[in-house]
Amino acid sequence: MREVVASSAVGVGFGFALSRIGFSQWDEVHRMFLFKDLRLTLAFGAAVVLLAAAWPLLRRLSRVPPAWPARPVHPGTLAGGLVFGAGWALSGACPSIALVQLGEGQLAAVYTLAGIFMGNVLYAKVHERWFRWSPGSCMDD
């Protein structure tokens, strides 16, 4: 129950923030990728810098060390990243954004959402059939 309530609180906050930042606007994302508007890129960079400063602090403060999953490079990292980037530029959505768009009333995001689930299932099948590497524990977090 606690997990569900906490997930819900984080989700609503994240969805609201992504909407107000403008990450859910196809045109904003398009301008980011064309380097025509650096606002989203700067926001992302600022967040990474703030997080890099905050993690060690939080780690020292917390009694139980929370999960700190390693994210190693594997054979799917580069190719998968490029494929996702292309999909992001086409649909204007990363996995959380499709849902934010839907909530905002940009109902065409149902197509993106359906596509994300199809792509996820498709990769699972492709991986089982042809690939022999382990994607690591990253799937879990």
Partner: peptide, 17 residues
């Protein structure tokens, strides 16, 4: 366009973990 883009997003994110 959105279904194709979505499939690439789902496929790529799972592939890249």
């Amino acid at each position: 366009v959105l279904v194709v883009g979505g499939v690439l997003v789902g496929f790529g994110t799972r592939m890249a973990s």
